[in-house]
Computed example of a mutant assay.
Amino acid sequence: MDTSGLQQSLASLSRQALREQIRANTYTGSTSGLVPGYLQANLVMLPADWATDFLLFCQKNPVACPLIGVTEPGQPFLDEIGAAIDISRDVPEYHVFHDGQFTAKVPDLEVYWRDDLVIFVLGCSFSFEEALIQSGLTVRNIEQQRNVSMYDTQITCQPAGRFHGNMVVSMRPFTPKDAIRAIQITSRYPKAHGAPVHFGDPAAIGIQDINTPDYGEAVDIHADEVPVFWACGVTPQNVLRQSKPPICITHAPGKMLITDVLNNALAVL
């Protein structure tokens, strides 16, 4: 099957069927555009003695880290997002950090799970992509079947306890007219990062080469378009590298946890 056919086949899967493939480690790709209508989530897993500081960080930085829920220590389940979801197995790829350094990427947490881990479930911009498409806008990363473009920036997050660092953003290009519409639409989804934090000149937020993302893949930007930047759930990974907890586990950029929560349940009317 060619890439286009594979993507169409995946897009038609129910969330349960896709989750079964992810749990069996047979699908490890991006989740952008998959299972329309349902919340996709970023993840941060930390030892319990670091959890209070990170909870405060989320509260101080709700645009970059929109908090959906928090588990009890050692529990990979959270009823609010789906009772049958095993957060330690139902993500296409996990990233493991020790003392702020990336050490491993794994398809499940069989080796790395610990009884003191607390999981933070955070909203993701993939959840508003469907609303953009339904409004007639073209989401370039979905159109080109690529992972969304993500960049480190010089936008400083509010520090909290042991956590500090800069924001990561995701980018989608639009014509100026469509950018205004995208701002209006995404502002209704504060739990999916809400309205953009910047549009236009990438250098103004510290991005030197828009064609070379720090995470994800580059997408085409047409001559009549401007890049539009949203806060991104990869921000905690940037912060973790600077704050250096003894261990932290996250999702791989662009490879999210698909929940049983409807996107519309998070919309502000």
Score class of each variant (00 low, 15 high):
D2V: 08
T3F: 15
S4R: 15
L6Q: 11
Q7R: 14
S12P: 04
R15I: 11
A24R: 15
S30V: 05
T31E: 13
P36C: 13
P36Y: 14
A41F: 09
L43S: 01
V44W: 14
M45Q: 01
D49C: 11
D53G: 13
L56P: 00
F57G: 00
F57T: 00
P62E: 14
P62F: 10
A64Y: 05
P66L: 04
G69K: 02
G69Q: 05
E72D: 09
G74N: 13
P76C: 04
L78E: 14
E80Y: 04
A84G: 06
A84F: 12
S88G: 06
F97T: 00
H98I: 07
H98S: 13
D99Q: 13
V106L: 09
Y112K: 09
D116V: 00
L122Y: 10
F126M: 09
F128Y: 15
S135V: 02
T138R: 11
V139K: 05
R140M: 15
N141I: 06
E143M: 14
V148N: 04
A160T: 03
G165M: 02
V168S: 04
V168M: 06
P173A: 11
F174M: 12
K177G: 01
A179G: 07
I180Q: 13
A182D: 08
T186E: 09
S187Y: 07
Y189K: 05
P190I: 10
H193A: 03
H198F: 14
F199S: 04
A204R: 09
I207D: 03
N211Y: 12
N211S: 06
P213S: 11
D214Q: 14
V219D: 07
H222I: 02
V228Y: 07
F229H: 02
W230C: 01
C232G: 00
G233N: 04
T235A: 05
Q237E: 10
S243P: 06
P246L: 12
C248D: 08
P253W: 11
I258G: 00
D260Q: 12
D260I: 00
